[in-house]
Design a protein around this nucleic acid. Structure first.
Lengths: 308, 308
DNA sequence: CGTTATCCGAAGGCATTTCCTTTAGCTGAA
DNA sequence: TTCAGCTAAAGGAAATGCCTTCGGATAACG
């Protein structure tokens, strides 16, 4: 089978006009080059150089071969550089898993940070739901992610970064009394997000468990996919909803007007963690993991301070 | 150093999703593929596949490498086909040496023949002079040629194909008597071609020798490069000239009007031969050699018949 | 016209690579 | 829990690649 080495020897010979010159250019002995070219000729079943006295004369076949040989070598060269570029995080795609509402916590800023530090990289934040992302992690399709606990997989490295508190959200100040209980939840007209993921979503399951203890099922009046949609509906007074303080914090000014919130009692928490498989992280993921960890912990501190 | 084999194994693995599948596709055992990919990873100093349970997941580096690896393999593949195409005379350039006045004997027809039989090839007929062409042959820059004898080189295969006769050409019928001798040549006002090659041109040397035997030098009044120019001058009556019957034969209707010719006595002949180095001829040259041989021999028969 | 320098090719030997088979360990699914 | 499928590791056989040395041929030079 044709080999790159043969092509290298061939091109050097073509360029320098003799095996000896090519050999010294490539740092080999002359018979080595000679043999490689002979092998190439044998494999191509043609004559590449006419041996005439001392000196070689390239044949038509050699002229035909030359450009393709160059292309092949250049491609291999380029391949090495492309991989190095990815390795050094100059180019390539950073793929990182996030829980669905991560955009309220960090999405835009995180992407901005990565793009600024590594111009040339693409960023891909994937994830509809923590459970789905965890599955991607386990299958190896993602290297790292930030998702809601629990993560029950001993092969994963789990680093908690933010604890968030579930709050009750309503447009009606009358319903925002100090201590909203599970019984209140069971009685309320609710709009809840994550319609497609209600079976696996940890928040939904936490809520369901708490409400069930009151003897009633959690039966939201409205179900939507998106947290923002749920908030919009709540803002119109059509129903109340439940969400994370971090979401309200992240929305800031963009929180639909007229909404207020109150804590649940007993409080319900969700812990988010950066998760990745054991072993080496690629530099790309390393960068994102570090950024996410720092940013989420900062957010955690900010939110706890505000509570106090 | 990166090798094509490694790239092949890598691509097969990428395509089939596992070492085992790639191995069976390439006809190797699994550990061979595994090792090649590991080697590739080591040389590129990166991870190409994340080993996750059973099955492999390509990394970003693998995605970066893939297109370049494909290009390299395709180029090598294409290289083989390009060479084969030359070998089978589908494309490429056929380079053939000819003596200067060959165009009167065969040039256009020869080219037409080659082009018709091998659409896709380029044809190059090189040669200012038989001596120069012979030098090209010896240096290996030409594979084969048709030139005037003598060829004193034991490494050359010489196949005589046409014997031509030198004739005296004039616009003045009075000077075209039956038996023109060397003395007549010495006395005549002559225009001779091959100004640049008079030292080495065999015809010129033959003429010079014959004239010198009469005690006079060969001192043409006019010297031009081109046989046709010499004939034009002769047609105007400015001087007489000497040329080969084959040239007149080949010119046919295009022979300048008013010119007549007469044989020399003793007759002077020139023999043209197809010449090439010993050993294998490339298919391209083989084709041309055969065409030239057939055509020149046909011409030879035609001219001898006309004499008889 | 001989001499010298240069280059290609062949042979023998050494080191490395490549591929095989076998075996063990791990993972995911029934 | 067992079974099937995959990767990884080890050891050995074969081939490949490279080196040095030598011989033959050619071109340049005195």
């Amino acid at each position: 089978m044709l080999s790159l080495h043969q092509l290298r020897c061939f091109l050097a010979t073509l360029e320098h006009g003799s095996f000896t010159a090519a050999a010294s250019a490539l740092g080999y002995a002359q018979p080595s080059i000679s043999e490689q070219v002979r092998l190439l000729e044998q494999q191509l079943d043609t004559t590449l150089f006419r041996r005439v006295g001392r000196g070689l004369v390239p044949t038509e076949a050699a002229r035909a071969l030359q450009p393709h040989a160059s292309v092949a070598l250049a491609a291999v060269d380029e391949a090495g550089r492309a991989v190095a570029s990815v390795r050094e995080l100059l180019t390539g795609t950073v793929r990182f898993g996030v829980f669905r509402t991560a955009r309220f916590y960090l999405a835009a800023d995180l992407v901005a940070d990565v793009l600024q530090r590594h111009p040339g990289v693409r960023v891909e934040l994937v994830g509809q739901n923590s459970a789905e992302v965890l599955e991607h992690l386990r299958k190896g399709r993602l290297e790292a992610a930030v998702i809601a606990l629990p993560v029950e997989d001993e092969n994963m490295v789990v680093t908690p970064v933010l604890r968030d508190e579930l709050v009750y959200v309503s447009a009606d100040p009358a319903r925002l009394h100090a201590r909203i209980t599970a019984a209140d939840l069971a009685a309320a007209q609710l709009v809840l997000p994550d319609a497609s993921w209600r079976e696996t979503d940890t928040t939904r399951r936490q809520l369901a468990q708490a409400v069930q203890r009151t003897g009633h099922p959690l039966r939201p009046r409205i179900e939507v996919e998106d947290t923002e949609t749920a908030l919009d509906i709540a803002a119109r007074g059509l129903a109340d909803t439940v969400t994370w303080r971090g979401v309200l914090h992240g929305l800031g000014d963009r929180l639909p007007a007229g909404l207020g919130w109150a804590p649940l009692r007993p409080a319900m928490y969700e812990t988010f963690a950066v998760v990745h498989r054991e072993g080496e992280l690629s530099p790309a993921s390393r960068v994102v993991v570090d950024l996410v960890t720092a940013r989420m912990r900062g957010l955690d501190r900010a939110m706890r301070a505000r509570t106090a």
